[in-house]
Design a protein around this nucleic acid. Sequence first.
DNA 1: CATGAATGAGGGTTCATTCAT
DNA 2: CATGAATGAACCCTCATTCAT
Lengths: 241, 241, 241, 241
Amino acid sequence: MTSLAKNLTMPAVNDHRPRVAAERRERMRRRLLESAMIVFADKGVGASVIPEVVAAAEVSQGSFYNYFRTNEELLAAVGDELSGEMVALIEAAVGDIEDPALRVATGMRCYLHLARSNRLLARFLAGAGLHLLDQQNAAFRYLPADLAEGQNRGDFADVPLEIILDIVAGSGLVVIDRIARGRTPKDYPDKVVAALLRTLGMKVADAERLTSQALPKLKPTADSLLARAQARATVQSSADT
Amino acid sequence: MTSLAKNLTMPAVNDHRPRVAAERRERMRRRLLESAMIVFADKGVGASVIPEVVAAAEVSQGSFYNYFRTNEELLAAVGDELSGEMVALIEAAVGDIEDPALRVATGMRCYLHLARSNRLLARFLAGAGLHLLDQQNAAFRYLPADLAEGQNRGDFADVPLEIILDIVAGSGLVVIDRIARGRTPKDYPDKVVAALLRTLGMKVADAERLTSQALPKLKPTADSLLARAQARATVQSSADT
Amino acid sequence: MTSLAKNLTMPAVNDHRPRVAAERRERMRRRLLESAMIVFADKGVGASVIPEVVAAAEVSQGSFYNYFRTNEELLAAVGDELSGEMVALIEAAVGDIEDPALRVATGMRCYLHLARSNRLLARFLAGAGLHLLDQQNAAFRYLPADLAEGQNRGDFADVPLEIILDIVAGSGLVVIDRIARGRTPKDYPDKVVAALLRTLGMKVADAERLTSQALPKLKPTADSLLARAQARATVQSSADT
Amino acid sequence: MTSLAKNLTMPAVNDHRPRVAAERRERMRRRLLESAMIVFADKGVGASVIPEVVAAAEVSQGSFYNYFRTNEELLAAVGDELSGEMVALIEAAVGDIEDPALRVATGMRCYLHLARSNRLLARFLAGAGLHLLDQQNAAFRYLPADLAEGQNRGDFADVPLEIILDIVAGSGLVVIDRIARGRTPKDYPDKVVAALLRTLGMKVADAERLTSQALPKLKPTADSLLARAQARATVQSSADT
DNA sequence: CATGAATGAGGGTTCATTCAT
DNA sequence: CATGAATGAACCCTCATTCAT
């Protein structure tokens, strides 16, 4: 690229500084989000993370307040970012599935498998408990419509869907807590989802069939919060030992 | 030794002193537990209740430490007491039921209805989140055996019970959170339990049938923590308005 | 003893109760002093002994205040009692010695050997530091006169005695601290006293001679604070291991 | 890189910001050390100085913990600083003296005279009691070697030096306590040192001769902790009257 | 915008002391 | 007198937040 081309595509030479500044700002924000996710996963969302976050991010106390004003704002930011990344991953995996029952089943399996392959995520979500149920739980952006569609097609029985949603949310929480704590078998998520399909009125065998197909790989991109925080957390905890 | 001699050597058999002291101590402990339950219900289980508990109980800070040494000890005491009271109430209601499926269904309905009729309890349990799942959740003392029995008799399908337990726990949590938050229809608990019976592999109609029978009244005694704390909390919140 | 004889020697039957009471009171006081000596030896005289003292003495908090009103009063009582016992023991051992220089030397050796054979005493005195220098330091009731007498007879050089007293006091303190801390050779006290005789202007050889004679045994009676507290402390610390 | 280029790429070389910050931090630290020395001198080393130090330094409680984390750390810092200043002063005064006996004698005299001319120092050291004997007591960095040298040259008798060190330490403590408490004659330190030389086996006359020479002035610099704390303490105690 | 010191509020805990029984 | 619960003052410490540089 010649310097002429450069001048054509980029506004002006004195726009250089602001852009660099914006990039630096963005890098900083991401460092903070990574650290925050790790610390929230460690200590839960209830309490006093700022000191540890700034320490982990190697940032001054004062700087923190240039990015987030309260604990809650920080938590919300982490929750939003994670929610977005999870939805994107799962959407990519299930968007093409026509059958609503299979789409629901596969989506839920993806969600749980994702947590199972990213322990930091599981610990964060478990630590968040009921705090993030509405915003973050990817489920609730798509699930209602899919369930209704499945019900219309007769795949699910005629049961009240709001109650299904509550049960799905609660199951997700406890199941992810179990995943966060320790060793769960590889097919644990699948069995949970099969059970939830039964809750929807499916027969045992049908539920089993819908949850035993191979799943697509869910791979967060290298610059995602999911990937970066997981990497850092892994490094740290091995360093601890 | 004649009773005359006894009167000469022992100063009037005033063994009522220890007894009255023990009673006072017990009353104080109960005052603290009531206040603690109320405060936990307000602020959640995670953090810093002692100052508020002390204020609510109108007791000095120092006194608190004559009874409980940490936040956790206090929480455990409240949890134990509530757990005991709930188990006693529910046991009384379902102990005589022979059919395991009906017993499970009725027990769960009692649990949720109890929370629905005692908002303070619901708020406490919701605030406790995952913290008390093992100890307090009355469910897990009886549920496993009842489920196994039901499965043996063929009332439930042949599904993995550990997963059922996770789903029951999670559902309980979120459902109670919803109850704690606001207006839920009178039959909300029953519908939830019907859904959980489906999770166990029951047919829709059977599940419905098992959850539509009249329930026995669950009435905590007047000196129970459930009743006393609820009474105090109601008084306070009306006073607040 | 017949009951007649009893009536003759003892004031009257209704004096019986007060005497018993006084004895109980005295026993209690001694229990407290023992415990206090042990606790002071453990934690030093500076701080917060009352809770541990009442625990060690197995007495209620309230009772304590029937005997001592403050920390200092308690410390003073222990100091007085120990001081008295030590003076009595040492006086018994050196009272008959005519030669003032030998009397001084032997007295000081007794003092240090006593501390060396009663580690609890050493730890108490070391912990007391400068707090008890005037009252407790047995030395200062007799030393001035003995020193003056020795100086008059020409055994000691013509040196200012107040300064000698300061040095003796200070040496005593640090030496006892060393004894309290750990292993000191058996003749450590003797060498210290020899050094102090040199401070008084004696020749090296003379000092050595005066401090190498056999010492009388110093044996606290079984009901002395020295003996009882030492016994209890030994029991406790072996129980700890 | 020319200095022109430098000016373009680096924002005005404002590396004075860190420097001025470090200076402010250092001033604060010194304020705290001054106050701490004064408070330790008042209440002794054992206990609970932080609130008073904070008050004396007119600093918030929170600030204190930006500098020292515990009572002990604070004490150690004061002790280290004082130790360093005292050693420097005395070293300057005696470093050139060839004769070991004279060096020892002069060093000890300096130490005591310094305490006598700085009552705050005397009170601090007396309050420290046995706590700082090893670290702070300037003596013990140089004394052993000097004593050994003197012994080799035949200036001191052949006596066990460890015992001498104990006696010197103890004497120092009690003597400084006396100085701290009240009026001592101007030559009190000299007489003490003469006595200690006798302890080393010197003749009365020799000891006297070595301790009667004029001493160099020991003048702490105006920005030393010794000088500044003394100044502040004097101001305060006159203000109290 | 980054920095990091200063702040003050708040929480946790211990202890000497009092007092009803 | 013995008891032990109740008290409140005092201490230790952490943290969110602000602000000068």
